[in-house]
């Protein structure tokens, strides 16, 4: 089955006063219809930049410097802005990190959903209104008629996120980008939002890319996981394999750092922090934190190599230990 979205060797750089910041460096991944792909990594690992790059919304001083983005057979990086506008919100939708502030404070939430439908579906006012309320009902907002007439500041965070999901799904997009959709919510509401996303993704058959730094979320929600570190892709694997047998040293460290309730073992935090991405040199960016670092790691960036079950991993140590082939 061919992929819906193919990201190939994508790099994004930001020109700052201190030098070039390489926020995303040569990331390659793909998403298939109906699957939920998790992207995990620490803060600053380039997850959110990757998401905005997929919509080609990287703002200056940021710039997509190289790579390819194919979506439904279109080359997104070559498309004129006008055609991209027809894709944003219609074929690819975004569920943002901060739902409340992503809603226009001066427009009722219902009208914002209506506007979207009128923009992309060319619906008239009445049809859009009915469709908007139906959408709010679909994301399980109680009393949707009344809620549609309210403003963002009158709704709870969870409610706002439901509205954002309603907006994201109103146009039946094929790809849904969810950028840490549960960050601003408390745990139980966050869990419900994720469950909702999962259900709606299943119903609509859309691909979902879920960005998060919470491995628990990944374990519960995703089918496949891409692990990012300092702008580079470390490992790409099915969710069960990833947790059972993490290959990349960084993934192993991440999995070990999950607090467990069933075992009396000390939590193992990962040493160091995400390295500065200003004027980075060649080589693996995890090398300073890596217990398995080899001489090659300092010189040369590890290529993304294929492993069993369609896994991909970028690590010299893994490559040499031959566990891969």
């Amino acid at each position: 089955m061919s992929a819906l979205l193919e990201v190939e060797d994508l790099s994004v750089e930001f020109a700052t006063d201190d030098g070039m910041v390489s926020a995303v460096d040569g990331v390659t991944l793909s998403a298939k219809a109906g699957e939920i792909l998790g992207i995990v990594g620490e803060s600053g690992s380039g997850k959110s930049v990757l998401i905005s790059a997929i919509l080609r919304l990287v703002r200056p001083p940021g710039r997509i410097v190289s790579g390819r983005l194919r979506f439904e057979g279109n080359d997104l990086l070559a498309l004129p802005e006008a055609e991209l506008e027809a894709i944003r919100g219609a074929r690819i939708a975004l569920v943002p990190q901060t739902p409340r502030t992503s809603l226009n404070p001066l427009m009722t939430v219902g009208r914002q959903v209506e506007r979207l439908l009128r923009l992309h579906r060319g619906m008239d006012k009445r049809a859009a209104r009915e469709a908007a309320i139906a959408m709010l009902e679909r994301v399980r907002i109680p009393d949707p008629k009344r809620r549609a007439g309210q403003y963002a500041h009158e709704l709870s965070g969870g409610m706002c996120q439901r509205v954002m999901i309603a907006m994201a799904l109103a146009t039946e997009p094929r790809l849904l980008l969810a950028d840490e959709p549960t960050t601003g919510l408390d745990v139980s509401i966050g869990a419900r939002i994720l469950e909702l996303l999962r259900q709606l993704g299943e119903e609509s058959g859309a691909a979902i890319i879920l960005v998060t730094h919470d491995l628990g979320v990944v374990a519960q929600t995703c089918h496949r996981v891409a692990v990012m570190h300092a702008g580079q892709l470390s490992e790409l694997a099915g969710v069960d394999e990833l947790f059972e047998r993490p290959l990349h040293p960084y993934t192993r460290a991440l999995v070990r750092s999950i607090p467990r309730i069933d075992q009396q073992i000390a939590l193992q935090p990962i040493a160091g922090a995400v390295p500065s991405l200003v004027n980075v040199r060649s080589g693996c960016r995890y090398v300073r934190r890596c217990p398995d670092a080899l001489a090659a790691c300092r010189r040369q960036r590890p290529p993304l190599i294929a492993a069993a079950n369609g896994r991909r991993v970028a690590c010299h140590a893994v490559e040499q230990s031959n566990v891969v082939r």
Binding site: L55, L57, A82, L84, E85, A86, I87, R88, G89, A90, A93, L94, P96, T98, T101, S102, L103, N104, P105, L116, L119, H120, M164, M167
Partner: peptide
Amino acid sequence: LEYAEAAVSIGNP
């Protein structure tokens, strides 16, 4: 503000 970016991200010119 974020809703400006949100407006762009849903395909408004």
